[in-house]
């Protein structure tokens, strides 16, 4: 029996919204420790790695590890019927062939319950090695979203380079070239506005802006976003969910031919 109760159901809704355009059919893996998802997009260019700790839930029971095969666009439709302040309850028997979702509104006392058929999804799991990245940048997630959106006007590829002068985003296309340079900023009193750049050695990599734009769907989850890069490796873009978990995106680079 798997049963989990999340007082702030909106967190789970935001997690679904942050990945449903990138990965469609996913297994939500339930263990005694957490709910997690690891899934690549159909082109195997990006990988989503989500984790939500059992400590995020007011009640969490998982007798046996389960894999809940779900179509995220369908899950997203169901979440449209969840109120902003609703409590969300997930429930599945061990012989999981369906998932129960319940939305409870404490104020009005209404309870909505939905049953989703589960799918058997054979997904290739990748071993993502723990890497000591050469550059790690923490910045306001809204700033990263704006940069990605603005640079899409200029072209389809973003060069991200981290040097001692700062973090530069560049895009070149038919109409010209755009550069946005961010410098370390830990002066502003609002922690969320800080830009911290830890650079062990300079890194310069190219990425498809289309994917970076998908990733910024996770902006509502976290006021800050963390970018980690090493030469010749996929970038990791991490949206922490308070202390409760994270949504991480790995993106393979575009290599000069």
């Amino acid at each position: 029996m798997f049963e989990a109760r999340l007082a702030n159901g909106n967190i789970f809704k935001m997690i679904v919204e942050s990945i449903r355009e990138l990965v469609v059919d996913v297994n939500i893996d339930c263990s005694t420790e957490e709910l997690s998802i690891q899934c690549m997009d159909s082109a195997h260019v990006a990988l989503v790695s989500m984790s939500l700790s059992q400590s995020a839930f007011d009640h969490f029971r998982c007798d046996r590890s389960l894999s809940l095969g779900l179509n995220l666009p369908n899950v997203s439709k169901i979440f449209k019927m969840m109120g902003r302040d609703d409590t969300m309850v997930l429930k599945a028997e061990d012989s999981a062939d369906k998932l129960m979702l319940m939305f409870e509104n404490d104020k009005s006392g209404t309870i909505a319950d939905f049953e989703l058929k589960l799918m058997a999804i054979e997904a290739e799991q990748l071993g993502v090695p723990d890497t000591a990245y050469k550059c790690s940048i923490s910045m306001p997630s809204s700033e990263f979203q704006r940069i990605v959106r603005d640079l899409q006007v200029m072209g389809d590829t973003c060069k991200i380079s981290c040097t001692k002068e700062g973090l530069k985003f560049s895009a070149t296309g038919q109409i010209g070239t755009g550069n946005i340079l961010m410098r370390q900023n830990v002066a502003s009193e609002k922690e969320e506005d800080h830009v911290t750049i830890d650079m062990e050695e300079p890194v310069e990599l190219n990425f498809a802006l289309r994917y970076l734009n998908f990733f910024t769907k996770a902006t509502p989850l976290s006021p800050t976003v963390i970018l980690k890069m090493s030469p010749g490796l996929p970038i990791v873009i991490e949206y922490p969910i308070e202390q409760l978990g994270h949504v991480k995106y790995y993106l393979a680079p575009k290599m000069e031919e």
């Binding site: 260019v45 990988l47 996929p234 031919e257």
Partner: peptide, 14 residues
């Protein structure tokens, strides 16, 4: 022109 790589080149399948 830069060519898109895929993650299989970086992460091993489990």
């Amino acid at each position: 022109k830069s060519k898109q790589t895929t993650l299989g080149g970086f992460f091993a399948a489990k």
